[in-house]
């Protein structure tokens, strides 16, 4: 039955070629350290699912932000779980991309022909940190507020454009409703859009170039 449906679809879309290319491609004999990229991808999916669910109730205004997070955490069924998965998933993301990067450096897997994979990965690393920084403010509690005061102030020491950079990040002189609103917009629209593009490129290149075998002794 599913073979018939699959065949019908394959004649019209050629999905089997893509499926086999992604899931049945040849891989060298590798170890568990090679699963870090896939693990990161799973957490990315987790962040997207739980993030979308959080936006159903979260309201990014200074009056409502904390109250809605409180409502999500304490009044809704499984709200604590959805928020918890997003919260811990964020930490897991930073950890996993870090380990993934260390693995690639250690094996020299960034070399020809995988330089673009590496560069897109660098972009994804920066993106992950930007997600973490903007997302940290959104609960609008004391920790979020003061962490962002400190975090944005770091921009101030930039030579020449420090004051300007600080004002751009905060949307004014102080952390305010404007900061919260734009951090939210960046966190849920700008960064995910770039993320999807870069992840798409990164995965395409992984499939196209294949993964590098662990270097042998003397290589």
């Amino acid at each position: 039955m599913s073979d018939r449906v699959g065949g019908w679809l394959d004649e019209r879309t050629g999905w089997r070629l893509v499926w086999d290319g992604v899931f049945l491609r040849q891989v060298p004999k590798v170890n568990w350290a090679y699963t870090l990229g896939s693990a990161t991808l799973i957490v990315v999916v987790n962040q997207i699912i739980t993030g979308i669910l959080l936006t159903i109730y979260y309201v990014p205004s200074v009056q409502d932000a904390y109250a809605t997070v409180d409502f999500i955490s304490h009044d809704l069924t499984a709200g604590w779980l959805i928020r918890g998965m997003h919260h811990w998933g964020a930490s897991a993301m930073v950890l996993l991309v870090g380990l993934h990067m260390v693995r690639v450096i250690y094996h020299g897997a960034y070399k020809f022909p995988r330089e673009i994979t590496w560069l897109s990965g660098v972009g994804l690393l920066v993106l992950t940190l930007a997600f973490g920084f903007t997302g940290y403010l959104l609960p609008w509690d004391q920790k979020a507020y003061w962490a962002t005061v400190v975090g944005t102030r770091m921009l101030e020491v930039t030579p020449l454009i420090g004051d300007w950079a600080l004002r751009v990040a905060r949307g004014g002189d102080d952390l305010s409703a404007v900061t919260l609103s734009r951090f939210y917009g960046i966190h849920v629209w700008v960064l995910p859009a770039i993320l999807l593009l870069l992840v798409g490129l990164h995965l395409y290149l992984v499939v196209r170039n294949g993964i590098s075998a662990p270097p042998k002794k003397g290589e």
């Binding site: 799973i42 987790n46 699912i49 739980t50 669910l53 159903i56 809704l76 069924t77 499984a78 709200g79 779980l81 959805i82």
Partner: peptide, 17 residues
Amino acid sequence: AIGIGWAVPGVAYVLSP
């Protein structure tokens, strides 16, 4: 199993109000 792990709390969360 992972899919169910997302779907069950997700649906409960959306429907609970």
